[in-house]
Amino acid sequence: MSLVNSLSQGVITTTADQFLNWTRKSSVWWMLFGLACCAIELMQTQGPRADVDRFGAAPRSSPRQSDLMVVAGTLTLKMALRTKVLYNQMPEPRYVIAMGACASCGGLFQLAYSVCDGVDKVIPVDVYVPGCPPRPEALTEGILKLQEKMMTETWLVRRPEIGAQA
């Protein structure tokens, strides 16, 4: 928070936007959407060593209770239709991280007939994390980049949705 004036009595002054963004970024609850190999690294990121819980990020099973959807793994065409449904079920403000090469662009499965080359063909993506699979440290950096992006939001102006028509 950049506008911090702390007086001797322990009072902080800020703007409403900054305050809301600070609360939102400090408790990013992500949906368990592990599809393939990156899901194991997602579980390791949640695990004891590269712990994202210290940033306030906790896993939720249901899209209705989560802010962030980490698409971890290859998206097949059969799954892409369901991914759209799940994304629409998430309440706003909602964010998407495309974790790994397969979710970003199809990865090494671009030669496949049944793979959707990148999750951004069906839902808008905020952060792309490269790797196959990305290390837990890389995913943590992705979440931190997302937090930086969240700090730039303005709550009076709605974020334009790209391709969000069902």
Binding site: G106, C116, D117, D120, K121
Partner: peptide, 20 residues
């Protein structure tokens, strides 16, 4: 002799550019 379809339910099956 299988020919890969160009799209499925409106999702195209090729990646036009990596810098989409």
């Amino acid at each position: 002799d299988f020919v890969e379809p160009t799209e499925y339910h409106g999702i195209s099956t090729t990646r036009e550019s990596l810098l989409r």
